[in-house]
Amino acid sequence: MNSPLFFLSYFVLSALVLVTAMAAVSFRNLVHCGLSLAFAFLALGAFYILLGAEFLGFVQILVYVGAVAVLIMFVILLAKPGVEERRWGWRDLVGRFAGVGVSLAVFLALLISVFRSPSLAVKAPEAPVFSIAVLGEKLVTEYVLPLQATGLLLTVAVLAAVIFASQEVTKK
C-alpha cells in the first residue's frame, strides 16, 4: 500500500522504538530505564502489527509489557540500586568508551553488510493473509516438538526462579 499514512506510521514508530530503547539504556535512574523499556516494547508491538503480524504484536505487548517489563521494575525496586553512583574509576571509563566504540563498529559492519547485499533490496509481496488458524495448526503438528520443549523450558524456568528466590527463606 502506497498510502502516506503507512509511511508516516512507519517512521514515527521506528523513531519511537529507537528513542525509547536509547532512553532505556541511558537513564541514570533505573526505574526510568524500566519505564522506557516498557514503552519501547509497546512501540515494538505496534511495529509488528504494522508489519502484518497482528497476533505477534499483541503477544509481544501482553508478554513483554505486562510481564517482562513489570518483572524488571519489581527487581529494580527489590534490589534497591536506585541511581547509579557518579563515581567513575579509570577502568569504568575505559570500559564505557570501549563498549560504545565496539557497538558503533558492530553497527557500521552490519550497515555495510546490509547495503552491500543487493538481493535484500526487495519489495514485499502482496499482503499475506495472517491466519491464526494456520499458525495454531502448524504449532500442534509440524512444530509440536519445539512447542513441548518451550513448555518444558518455561516450567523449568519457573521452578528455578522460585527456588532461587526462596533460598533465603529455606536457610532460616
Binding site: M1, N2, S3, F6, F7, Y10, S14, V17, L18, A21, M22, A24, V25, I49, L50, L51, G52, E54, G95, A98, G99, V100, V102, S103, L104, V106, F107, L110, L111, V114, F115, L120, A121, V122, K123, A124, A127
Partner: peptide, 28 residues
C-alpha cells in the same frame, strides 16, 4: 496492514541493527 512501496527490506534490517547495537551498548 500493508506494505509501503518505497520501503524495502533494507529499512527494517537497519532498524533492527540499530536496536541490536543499543542493546550491545547496555551490555558492554
Amino acid at each position: 496492514f500493508d506494505f509501503g512501496v518505497g520501503i524495502t527490506l533494507h529499512t527494517y534490517l537497519v532498524l533492527s541493527a540499530a536496536l541490536f547495537c543499543i542493546g550491545l551498548v547496555a551490555v558492554l
